Every structure is written in structure tokens, then in C-alpha cells.
Amino acid sequence: MPDTQNYSQKFPEIFEKQTKWIAERSNEITFVLHLGDITNNNNKEQWENASKAMNILEGKLPYAVVTGNHDIGKNGRTDVRDTDLFNQYFSYGKHSKMNGFKGAYEEGKMDNTWHEFKAGGHKWLILSLEFGPRNKVLAWASEIVKAHPKHKIIIQTHAYMYSDETRMSSERGHRWLAQSTGLAADTRSEAPNDGEQIWEKLVSLYPNVMMVVSGHVLNDGVGTLISQGKHGNTVYQMLSNYQTGVHGSENGGNGFLRILNFDIPKRTIIVKTYSPVTDTFKQETDQDFIFENVDFN
């Protein structure tokens, strides 16, 4: 579920239709990822709308959320890393009791968490990392990965891939970087990281990291990249975003979301883009595609 910010602000009924559709298929869906920018302006009204929609999943199936740039700072301006409202509406006390929840970077805060589940004969681990994850958060995430060498790792963070099929980086002249927000003033262990830095400091270093998913970037709102980690493992990386500002978007995104089907016997990951609101699939090749010859061993 990428970038629901405009639903929280203007179209809460679309947000609820998304989660109702997911909840009704809880026997088919193993895990739900929300890629951040849950709200647009980091205010109580929008957090209430978001919480109401996400609560539809309660008791149905596990999910993990991450903060986006619009979820922190005054009016969602990303001037400071303030997650008080996020943690009020997505509380540690509640979500730490969810099936599959295993821990957080800071006990009592949901900013950075990890979950696990079993599916298809494999153990899976979900790492959910804040917008522009700090150096100390990446170090924590590395320890989690190293401690679980038998798990397949999926990382979700709000800003990682860009719409030109590369990872976000100032060296490529990319827009909407964590390094171009108020967070850039933070240094050393507090310093934020953009996509290429996350790759270098975390993703590329471990043989069991399989996938990174992110939202955030506008333009056409999609980007796909297959890279080899330092151990020769293949890492599948995807940007998906349908919000206002993305080319051709309507009604804040019209409820489009990504469906990933991991077919272990066929060694494929099938990617579909669907809207429960319009009951339509996107047919473009960058919205409907298959990763083949996936090594699930």
C-alpha cells in the first residue's frame, strides 16, 4: 500500500475500500506492507482517518507500516523527525501484540520494526525502516539480518527507488531526497540515508536480502531494478506510487495497490497493480510483470 496521504486528507472512503478488500481476502494474503506517507500533513484528523482504515485489518492479517516524509515534522514538512502522532495512532502497545511482531529499534516506538512469518516452506523477515533511515537505524537493521541468516529478508522504507530505475541519490540529480529536507542537518549516527546509501550500508551486504519496496517518488511513480548483492544474491527493488502528482493519477491515486505473488515451485514473483475502487488492473509493462528464475533456496 503506497502513499495513502491524499486518502487520509481528502478521500478516506478510498482508504477504507482498500483495507476492506484486503481483509476480505485474508485467507489469500500473507502480509501487508504500507510504504509510508500515511498522512499528508501529520495532523490528528488525517491520522484518525488512517487509523480507522488500517484498523479494518485488525485480527484479519498482519501488517507493517513505515513513516514517510509527510508523516513527520510540523504539518508534514519533514523539518524534524517527530513521530509523536504516528506513535499515538499506531501505538507500540497495540501493534507489538500483532501476530508476527518481533521487535523494534526503540521499545515503545513503531518507527523501525521487524516482523516474521512462514510461507511457502520458508521463513520470511520484514524490516520496516523510517523515512531516510539514520545511520544508527541501519546498524540496528544489520544486526537483525545477521542474526537471522536462514530468513528471506524483505525491506520496506518510504524513499529508496527513483522513477528512472535507479536508487535515489544526490549524485544522480534526484528530487525528493531525505538529504534535501530538514533532516539533512542531522549528522553522524543521526544522519539520514537515501536509497544508494541504504544499498551500500545495508541491502547489498547480506546474502539473504531478497527485496526492497518503496513509494514516495512522483513522475510516473514506478521504478524497478534488479541488482546483485556482494554475495552474488539477486535483490529485487521496486518503487510504486499512485498519489496526486503522479502522471495520470485521479482521486488521490484511485486506490491502486501492488499485489505480489511468490510462486515458489515456479520460481517466480508475479507483480500486479490493482484498484479495489475501480476494480481494474493496470496493464502497462511496468505495472504488470514477472520476476523469473528467482532463487528461493
Rank of each mutant, 00 (worst) to 15 (best):
Y274D: 09
E190F: 00
G195C: 03
K94A: 10
F291N: 02
V246Q: 04
A23E: 14
Q156A: 05
R258L: 07
A139M: 05
N251H: 12
V294W: 01
R81Y: 12
Q197G: 10
F101G: 03
Q46N: 08
L205V: 01
N40K: 13
Q243W: 06
G76N: 06
N87E: 10
T78W: 02
F291V: 00
I14A: 08
F281I: 01
E171N: 13
T157R: 03
K97W: 08
A119G: 09
Q179E: 11
S142K: 10
Q156N: 13
S128P: 06
G93P: 04
H247N: 12
D279C: 04
G255R: 07
V246A: 09
G120H: 06
N135A: 11
P149K: 15
G245F: 11
Y105I: 00
I29H: 05
L35T: 14
T78V: 11
I269E: 12
L218V: 04
Y7D: 15
P149E: 13
V212Y: 05
S163H: 12
S96I: 04
G108N: 01
M211P: 00
Y236L: 11
K282M: 12
R167W: 02
R81Q: 12
G232A: 09
F262G: 07
R258A: 08
V246Y: 07
D164P: 02
K20N: 14
H70V: 10
A178F: 03
L218R: 05
L33D: 07
Q46T: 08
R77P: 01
V65F: 11
F15W: 15
R172Y: 14
T19L: 14
A178K: 03
R77A: 15
K17P: 02
G93W: 02
A139R: 10
D3P: 09
L127D: 11
T19C: 15
R188V: 13
D279E: 13
L257Y: 13
E130Y: 04
R175C: 10
N233H: 14
H231M: 11
F31M: 10
Q179S: 15
N55M: 05
M1P: 08
T19V: 15
E13Q: 15
N297M: 03
T30K: 13
K150P: 00
A184F: 05
Q46G: 04
Q18D: 11
G252I: 06
L138Y: 05
A159E: 12
P149N: 04
D3I: 06
M210W: 04
R258N: 09
D37L: 11
F262L: 15
A185Y: 05
N208L: 02
E16T: 09
Q179F: 07
G182N: 08
K102V: 11
I226A: 09
K123I: 00
L57I: 06
T4L: 11
K44I: 13
G223V: 00
L57W: 05
G121E: 03
L129M: 11
N75A: 14
Y206P: 03
P133H: 06
K52I: 03
T224Y: 08
E13V: 08
L202A: 01
